[in-house]
């Protein structure tokens, strides 16, 4: 029967032979010319042994994120950044939201969503950013954000927000997460944008979803 058991030697692991798995080796492997070695290094960094190492790895990953053009490596770097949960590095991630690269931006939104405790203060800042698109991204992060204050922040936002698309994003999230507490702000918002059929539609839906 040509179904065979694997040989005694496990499959070769080139990255392992090239770089030692200590902190210094992992950091150097992050600059290797082959993407698979960089992915492997970024993945192994998730197993950091202590806070000092976590901060060291997180800073190294963040520093390379923008210049890393291989999407597969970037994905692993972001996954590890979230798993490391280093506050300084996660704050640094917010800067990547200003890039023109939609893929990177979406990856960062997803990453920040995964670390609510660490990213909450940054998101509050982003919600007040001068650039409407940044406010939309901040609202997108809140969409599945494990934080008890999400509704409160969104109510605050729609009470004064002037940009129709930012409001629309916030209302979309409130449809899922809102309670009766959102209703006065939703009703007021409806008054402020009587000429916007989409926003009216979304608000009506949110009012339906938040009715007790």
């Amino acid at each position: 029967m040509p179904l065979i058991k694997p040989g005694q030697t496990p499959p070769s692991d080139e990255e392992k032979r090239r770089w030692p798995r200590d902190a210094d080796g992992l950091l150097r492997a992050l600059d290797d010319s082959t993407p698979s070695a960089r992915r492997c290094s970024a993945r192994d960094m998730a197993n950091a042994e202590n806070d000092a190492q976590r901060a060291l790895f997180a800073a190294a990953l963040l520093a390379r994120l923008r210049s890393e053009h291989e999407v597969s490596v970037r994905e692993v770097m972001l996954t590890t950044l979230v798993r490391l949960g280093d506050i300084a590095a996660l704050s640094g991630l917010a800067d990547c939201l200003r890039t023109d690269d939609t893929t990177l931006r979406n990856e960062v939104i997803e990453a920040m969503r995964e670390a609510p405790a660490e990213t909450a203060p940054i998101i509050l800042e982003l919600l007040g950013d001068a650039e409407p698109s940044l406010r939309v991204f901040a609202v997108n992060i809140l969409e599945s954000f494990r934080h008890p204050d999400v509704e409160h922040w969104l109510i605050d936002l729609i009470s004064h927000e002037a940009n129709v698309n930012v409001c629309a994003s916030a209302v979309d999230v409130l449809c899922l997460t809102g309670s009766t507490a959102s209703r006065p702000a939703l009703l007021a918002l409806r008054q402020r944008f009587p000429e916007e059929p989409f926003l009216q539609f979304a608000i009506d839906l949110a009012l339906k979803r938040t009715a007790d």
């Binding site: 629309a168 979309d172 449809c175 899922l176 979304a202």
Partner: peptide
């Protein structure tokens, strides 16, 4: 679209 309200609005 990832926004449910947008999908519903366009659908309708």
């Amino acid at each position: 679209d990832d926004a449910a309200t947008v999908r519903l609005y366009h659908r309708q």
